[in-house]
């Protein structure tokens, strides 16, 4: 910790220091308000009636709390011609995210294990190719992917979306596990080989038990990415298989009928809840994934 304001021998008198601390806390508080304000506005708007929204202001608390908007958002709001709320799309997202997260994490773990511990000619090239793949703008694969899904008979289906998320998640999951396993001494693998343990045995009994932290990081990273995805969802789904982000956008930007801002806000909060929940319970691992994705090595 760089506690400069307190330890510097040249810093001024005690009162000046106390004033400085106050200023510091006030600034931190103002920034906290800036980050919290949109969430606060969303929550209070979702509990207001439309009449109150039209007459009241953005940050005043609801005079009368109503759950109507939440009910409509969950099971009645219209996304285009369908009027079933976000509920079916929420479950679509669950059905897409869970298998895609599990499969991409498992393959990533095996890939990372090979690249880090079973070095052979070409393993580094493989890793470089994968790493590179993490950075491509997905627009460059959208068109051929749409055709490929059509050829495979998976266009507009949930398995198709799972497939896409697994493929383009592999780069990051491999990267996470590789960087984790590379710090485990290779003597461990060698000793196990001498004792007659095979490839999978070593992975299963030595590496997997050590991997809990990186599994948590990877699962959270992948879940957040896939749950929050919009580009693949909007490009490769059709009516009925859309993920919740696409449904939310359709509700908010539908041009028919009266604009129900309270329903928009409730739907947005519903779409955000799973990742917010993960963030609140496992924030430490979420941050670790974010920084691992950007600061490698």
């Amino acid at each position: 910790m760089t506690d400069l304001s307190y330890t510097s021998p040249r810093s001024g008198s005690r009162t000046a220091n106390i004033l400085l601390r106050w200023a510091l806390y006030i600034m931190l508080g103002l920034f906290a308000l800036f980050y919290l304000m949109p969430l606060f506005v969303m929550v209070i708007t979702s509990f207001k009636s439309l009449d109150e929204i039209r007459t009241g202001d953005l940050i005043s608390l609801p005079r009368e709390v109503t759950f109507d908007a939440w009910r409509t958002a969950w099971s009645g709001a219209c996304t285009g011609i369908q009027c079933e709320g976000v509920r079916p799309f929420f479950w679509n997202s669950v059905l897409i995210a869970i298998p895609a997260v599990l499969i991409s994490t498992l393959i990533g773990a095996l890939n990372g294990y090979v690249v880090a511990q079973w070095r052979f000619k070409g393993a580094n090239l493989f890793f470089a190719l994968m790493l590179f793949g993490c950075f491509i703008p997905f627009q460059v694969v959208l068109l051929p992917m749409a055709r490929m899904l059509g050829l495979m008979g998976m266009a507009g289906t949930i398995p198709g979306l799972i497939f896409v998320h697994v493929i383009y998640g592999l780069g990051f999951t491999t990267l996470f596990f590789r960087n984790y396993y590379v710090s485990i001494p290779s003597e461990l693998t060698k000793a196990a080989k001498v004792d007659g343990a095979g490839f999978f045995r070593i992975f299963w009994s030595i590496f997997l038990p050590l991997s809990l932290p990186i599994i948590v990081v990877t699962v959270i990273w992948q879940f957040t990415q896939i749950w929050n995805d919009f580009l693949f969802g909007v490009s490769f789904s059709q009516a009925g298989t859309q993920p919740v982000t696409v449904a939310l956008n359709n509700i908010v930007n539908s041009t028919t009928g009266v604009k129900a801002y309270n329903v928009d806000m409730a739907a947005a909060i519903i779409a955000a809840l799973p990742t917010l929940f993960v963030y609140v319970v496992a924030g430490k691992y979420f941050v670790r994934g974010l920084t691992a994705g950007s600061v490698k090595g």
Binding site: P38, L248, M265, A272, T275, L276
Partner: peptide, 11 residues
Amino acid sequence: MALSMIVTGTA
């Protein structure tokens, strides 16, 4: 950072 950009945009 944990929110979808669609949620951020809506808010």
